[in-house]
């Protein structure tokens, strides 16, 4: 019993300490005086690895999810004779929920894990220590560009996901199932509000992007520098990110669309 309590205490303390270290990492890498001339090429490189390389999986998933939504929406709504509302259903569910959440989940799996593994391996091969000894702060050189790139890419990817999904939905509903395209789009436009639905979706994706990339760089920087440690850190990135995304999604949805 005592042992159990001791273990519990130690674990809790470890977690709290980890949160503290994560905060420290964030402040050291972001608050540090930026050196824009140095930073821009690094940022572009990371935007490529984090953003551009995630594009294919985002587009393909968006397309299929939109098509499934169109199909499912149609089969449900046609029973009530309101199949015109399928455009509204596809757009609202994508813009408000699916685009930010699914993009963030894919992003954690595709980009987050890669960032963790890369930084972890740099730590294991003493490259991070070597940057320090050359007099270059790895927080600014390695961590900061990745943080920014993740933060910038995620909303872009999420909006692309939404548009591709809506297009996929229209493909199924209009071109395949034969809903009149005028009412498909008009219904959608009447019910989707830019300031409430679209902007809130973008805000969600900003929050998710920030959290995912933060977890990813922290796990990489904090990992035990062995192959085992790196693989555990990569797993933790994906698991913690996914849980954080889903939990935060509920909170944000309650704040944005709930009645308080």
């Amino acid at each position: 019993m005592i042992q159990f309590l001791q273990k519990l205490g130690a674990k809790t303390l470890n977690r709290v300490a980890a949160v503290g270290r994560a905060g420290q990492l964030l402040s050291q890498s972001l608050i540090a005086k930026p050196a824009p001339m140095m930073m821009l090429p690094l940022l572009i490189r990371q935007l490529y690895f984090i953003g551009v390389l995630s594009l294919v999986i985002i587009i393909v998933s968006g397309l299929f999810i939109g098509m499934v939504l169109g199909l499912q929406g149609y089969t449900i709504l046609v029973d009530y004779g309101s199949e015109q509302a399928v455009g509204q259903m596809v757009a609202l569910s994508l813009v408000r929920e699916l685009a930010p959440v699914v993009t963030a989940l894919l992003f954690a799996g595709r980009a987050g894990s890669a960032v963790t593994a890369e930084i972890g391996l740099m730590k294991a091969t003493e490259q991070l220590a070597c940057y320090e000894m050359i007099g270059v702060d790895p927080m600014r050189r390695i961590i900061a560009p990745r943080l920014w790139a993740g933060f910038i890419s995620m909303p872009l990817l999420s909006m692309i996901f939404a548009i591709v999904g809506i297009w996929g939905g229209s493909l199924v509903a209009v071109d395949w199932l034969g809903i009149f395209s005028g009412s498909f789009w008009a219904n959608m436009q009447a019910s989707v509000s830019f300031s409430e639905d679209v902007l809130n979706g973008v805000i969600k994706s900003l929050v998710f992007g920030f959290v995912v990339i933060w977890i990813a760089v922290f796990q990489g920087n904090d990992c035990v520098p062995t192959s085992e440690g790196i693989s555990q850190a990569t797993t933790r990135t994906v698991v913690y990110s996914s849980l954080a995304i889903l939990g935060l999604d509920f909170l944000l949805t309650a704040m944005m669309f709930g009645d308080f």
Binding site: T125, Q127, M133, I134, G135
Partner: peptide
């Protein structure tokens, strides 16, 4: 970090930056 810029260290593991060529590694400092 200013102090470290005046030090040079050869790591036991080498610790070359794997995303750069040899020349870029040497040019980095």
């Amino acid at each position: 970090f200013e102090l470290r810029a005046k030090m040079g260290m050869l790591f036991q593991s080498g610790a070359l930056f794997t995303d750069m060529t040899v020349a870029e590694n040497v040019a980095f400092p």
